[in-house]
C-alpha cells in the first residue's frame, strides 16, 4: 500500500528531491541514463552510471564509446551558470579556467563547452590587446573546428574574422572571408564576410581611381574600372538586401555604398542610398552622415568608413 502511495504520488507529479547528475542518451537505447561523467578519452568517456533496482540506486563505473553516445545533457552548476550569465572582465581568469576544463568536451553533443569558449574569446577580443586577441583567435578557431553546435561554429567563424581585422591582417581576413562565404549559413557570419570582401573590393577600386582618375573618359580602362565599381557597390549592398534585420552591418554597408557612389561622382545614387539608410535605419550611427549628404547637395558628405 505504501508502495502504491509512493507510486501515486509520483504519478501525481510531486518532484522528489535529488542529487545533480548528467543525462546520457545512447544511440541504440530509448532509455536515457543518469550518469556522472568522470573523464574523457580520445574515443570514450568514463562515467558512473546510476542503476536503480528495488527502490535503491547504486552506481557502476563504465567506459562508454563516444560513437555510441547520442548526447550528454550536462548538469550546469549554478556557479557556472552565474559566471556565463554575467561575465565581467575581472572574472576572465575564472572563465579561462572553466574553458580549460571544459574545452575537451567541445565535440560532445549538448555540451556547453562552446558557449564557455565563445565567452572567453569575446572578452579577450574586446580587450583590444594584441596578445589577447591572438588567444581569442585561437579559441575561436578551436570552436569552429570542434564544436558540435553549428550556430556556435558560425559565431566562432565571425569571431575569427573580427580578430584578424583587429590584428591588422586584412589579407588573411579576406581569404578567410572568401572561404567562409562558400559554406556559411549563419547570417551574422555571412554579412561579416561579405563586408570584408566589399572592403577589399573598395580598396581595389580606390587604387584604380588613383591610377585612372579620368576613367570614364579612358576607353582602355573604362570597362575594367566600371566592373570593379559595380562589384564594390553590389558587395556593400548585400547586408541590407539579404540580412536587412542586422541593422548595424546593413547600415554600414549602405553608407559604404553611398561613399563608393560619391567616389564615382554619382551623387544621385549616393543620395538614394542615404535616403534608404535614413528610412530603414534611422537610429544607426550612419544616419547623421546620411542626413548631411542629403541636405548639402554641393558638399561632399563622405566620411570615414
Amino acid at each position: 500500500m505504501r508502495r502504491r502511495m509512493v507510486a501515486i504520488l509520483l504519478l501525481l507529479g510531486l518532484a522528489l528531491p535529488g542529487v545533480a547528475f548528467d543525462v546520457l542518451k545512447l544511440v541504440d537505447d530509448e532509455v536515457p541514463l543518469k550518469v556522472r561523467v568522470d573523464g574523457l578519452g580520445d574515443t570514450f568517456i568514463v562515467a558512473r552510471v546510476a542503476i536503480e533496482s528495488d527502490g535503491k540506486t547504486r552506481t557502476e563505473q563504465r567506459t562508454i564509446q563516444l560513437a555510441d553516445i547520442e548526447f550528454i545533457d550536462f548538469e550546469i552548476p549554478e556557479a557556472e551558470a552565474s559566471l556565463l550569465a554575467a561575465p565581467v572582465p575581472g572574472k576572465l581568469e575564472q572563465l579561462r579556467d572553466l574553458w580549460e576544463a571544459k574545452s575537451k568536451w567541445l565535440g560532445v553533443r549538448r555540451s556547453n563547452s562552446g558557449t564557455v569558449g565563445l565567452e572567453v574569446a569575446e572578452v579577450l577580443l574586446r580587450s583590444g590587446e594584441a596578445a589577447k586577441v591572438d588567444v581569442a583567435l585561437a579559441t575561436f578557431a578551436a570552436i569552429e573546428r570542434g564544436d558540435w553546435d553549428t550556430s556556435r561554429q558560425a559565431r566562432a567563424q565571425q569571431g575569427k574574422l573580427r580578430c584578424l581585422l583587429a590584428l591588422g591582417r586584412p589579407e588573411e581576413a579576406l581569404e578567410e572571408a572568401k572561404r567562409v562565404a562558400e559554406t556559411a549559413e549563419d547570417p551574422g557570419i555571412l554579412v561579416e564576410t561579405r563586408l570584408v570582401m566589399a572592403q577589399a573590393a573598395r580598396d581595389r577600386f580606390e587604387a584604380m581611381l588613383e591610377e585612372n582618375p579620368k576613367w570614364r573618359e579612358d576607353d582602355e580602362v573604362r570597362e575594367q574600372v566600371t566592373a570593379e565599381y559595380h562589384d564594390t557597390v553590389d558587395q556593400f549592398l548585400y547586408p541590407c538586401l539579404f540580412h536587412g534585420s542586422l541593422e548595424e552591418p546593413a547600415a554600414r554597408g549602405l553608407w559604404n555604398a553611398a561613399e563608393v557612389y560619391l567616389l564615382a561622382d554619382d551623387r544621385e545614387a549616393a543620395q538614394n542610398c542615404a535616403s534608404d539608410l535614413l528610412k530603414l535605419y534611422p537610429d544607426s550611427e550612419f544616419a547623421g552622415k546620411a542626413k548631411a549628404l542629403l541636405s548639402a547637395p554641393t558638399a561632399e558628405g563622405a566620411g570615414g568608413h
Binding site: L10, L12, G13, L14, A15, L16, G18, F21, V23, K25, P32, K34, F71, D73, R110, E185
Partner: peptide, 29 residues
C-alpha cells in the same frame, strides 16, 4: 530552409530536454 532548420533544431532540443526532465522527474506540468 533556415526556418525549418531552426525549428527542427528546436524540436531536437525540446525532445532532449523532455528526456532529461522525465529522467530527473521534473514536475508533470
Amino acid at each position: 530552409e533556415r526556418l525549418l532548420k531552426h525549428q527542427r533544431g528546436r524540436l531536437l532540443d525540446l525532445e532532449a530536454r523532455h528526456t532529461g526532465m522525465k529522467l530527473r522527474k521534473a514536475s508533470q506540468d
